[in-house]
Design a protein around this nucleic acid. Structure first.
Length: 491
RNA sequence: GGCGCAUUCGUCUAGGGGUUUAGGACACCUCCCUCUCAAGGAGGAGAUCACCGGUUCGAAUCCGGUAUGCGCUACCA
């Protein structure tokens, strides 16, 4: 590797940060950090018509959330700025002018309508589409004529008619393209903005980018870029085309596949450390067994040699599993801190705010190992907060029991609980376990009835600990309520 | 249509000529633990390494072809 590694993440603010896109950012960031180089963010806002309000902020928020800090770019600047292409127009225009002057580019006056007709005709004749180079050989007089008509031209690259252009991709090896298959692509649009091709070559050169790591969809246009570098007299960077991320049906990841924006994953309660780890494993691996890697381990072991060439499908199930792992690894304090905003948002409105933090600190350890996302926590813990959980009385009657035996069991339990001075897990178990035997019930039957009575659910955290957190008063009143439900129920 | 890239369990992947009866992870199934649910532990099932040829003593691994998938083929990135 060259001594100085400078890589860039160059998103276009035409939408929200897609996970595939973010994965590209991650790989660039890991590559930079691994080599002690610079990670640069450059906003490619050259398409005025597709610009989406707030997209830049969303992209930067996504990066910040994942901890992908940039050395140069929006908000931090740097000596190669500005980092918004819309603020660098003169450079592209100058390059286009130069190319035209030296005969590597030309002005094209074809109207969008003509181009459209041309393409339709090509399609009809089953000809490969592409600009027919009508303006390539325009004389000075013909140009003057068009200018006089008031037509604003675009600048097109004068692609060599023969020869080949090869790219030595760091991931895919040597890839060769025939120049005659590349049409005279547009460099500068009529609105004065550059196309991706021109802006990229110019910026990557002036920003001294050493490696371009981008998605595979760019592989086909790499020869254009190489040709441009050569015409401009620039030394091209090294290229590495990353495998794409696909949806479950193997098509390009889109809204149809559920969450695609990194923002949605944050809102759904996935941890940034999970996303970093998971995304790193989509197209890269350390070895045959390692699945869980910290940010530092990723930086330490990341290498292009271990990036795969095959497109990967985003596997939601595995993401959930991994998030569960990271959730369980959090300290109780940290877990609480991360849950708070989700509880505030997810708990019913009837629960008064601000939420009782000390009480929450007692609850969350019981929920921590049961949650796969932070959003689920509110649902798992809701019964701790409401006045009285709502449930169907039939849930109280567990397998092998009747309404009568259940009533008897709950009444017996209440009698045991009422005098209990030390309402703690040990004493509770010491009293309730023998009770089951006395009643001729299996522990599961008695505990099951009590669980539903106190939590309103058949599946919940361990009973005694739950009862302790709930407190004696509330447990007794809930058992009372359960008894009432059973009494009023016609069986 | 043309060009390019890719093709190992359902998914993410290891493996890059003999170490492979192709390893791990998620999901799935069984059992254990157990007051339920999780978590954890132990097992299981799951891949003729896309297909066809070739090279080789030997190929998932190298080469060619075919098929399939994806990408590009815009005054979008």
């Amino acid at each position: 590797m060259p001594n100085i590694v400078r890589v860039r993440y160059a998103p276009s603010p035409t939408g929200y940060p897609h996970v595939g896109n973010i994965r590209t950012a991650l790989f660039n960031w890991l590559f930079a950090r691994h080599h002690g180089g610079s990670f640069i963010v450059r906003i490619e806002d050259t398409d005025v018509t597709r610009k989406v309000e707030g997209a830049v902020e969303a992209i930067l928020d996504g990066l910040r959330w994942l901890g992908l800090d940039w050395d140069e770019g929006p908000e931090v600047d740097g000596k190669y700025g500005p980092y918004f292409q819309s603020q660098r127009l003169e450079r592209y225009q100058e390059a286009a002018r130069r190319l035209a002057a030296q005969g590597d580019a030309y002005y094209c006056y074809c109207s969008p309508q003509r181009l459209e007709e041309m393409r339709a005709e090509q399609a009809r004749r089953k000809q490969p589409p592409g600009y027919d180079r009508r303006c390539r050989g325009l004389s000075q007089e013909e140009r003057a004529e068009k200018e006089a008509e008031g037509v604003t031209p675009v600048v097109r690259f004068k692609t060599p008619l023969e020869g080949q252009t090869g790219c030595n991709d760091l991931i895919r090896g040597e890839v060769v393209f025939e120049n005659n298959l590349i049409d005279d692509f547009v460099l500068l649009k009529s609105d004065g903005y550059p196309t991706y091709h021109l802006a990229n070559a110019v910026d990557d050169h002036f920003m001294e980018i050493s490696h371009v790591l981008r998605a595979e969809e760019w592989l086909s246009s790499t020869p254009r870029h190489l040709l441009l570098y050569r015409a401009l007299g620039f030394e091209p960077p090294q290229f590495a085309h990353l495998p794409m991320l696909l949806g479950t049906d193997r098509s390009k990841l889109s809204k149809r596949h559920g969450a695609v924006s990194i923002t949605e994953y944050r809102e759904q309660g996935y941890l940034p450390e999970t996303m970093v780890n998971f995304l790193a494993l989509l197209g890269w691996s350390l070895d045959d067994t390692t699945e869980l890697l910290s940010r530092d381990e990723l930086i330490k072991s990341f290498s292009l040699e271990r990036v795969s060439r095959t497109a990967a499908i985003f596997n939601q199930d595995k993401l959930s599993w991994m998030n569960g792992v990271y959730l369980r690894r959090l300290s109780a304090e940290e877990f609480t801190r991360r849950c708070l905003p989700f509880l505030d948002k997810g708990l019913p409105a009837e629960v008064k705010r601000p939420l009782p933090v000390d009480y929450i600190r007692q609850i969350l350890p019981l929920v921590q190992e049961r949650a796969k996302t932070l959003t689920e926590v509110a649902g798992l813990a809701e019964f701790f907060f409401v006045q009285q959980p709502d449930y169907d009385a039939s849930l109280l009657i567990s397998k092998g029991m009747s309404r009568e035996t259940t009533i008897r069991a709950l009444e017996a339990a209440r009698l045991k609980l009422e005098p209990l001075a030390d309402f703690d897990a040990g004493p509770l178990e010491a009293v309730l376990r023998p009770l089951a035997e006395n009643l001729g019930l299996k522990t599961g039957q008695l505990f099951g009835a009590l669980r539903v009575a106190t939590t309103g659910q058949t599946a919940a955290p361990p009973l005694f600990q739950t009862m302790v957190v709930l407190g004696k008063e509330r447990c007794l009143s809930r058992v009372e309520a359960a008894l009432e439900k059973l009494a009023s129920r016609a069986s």
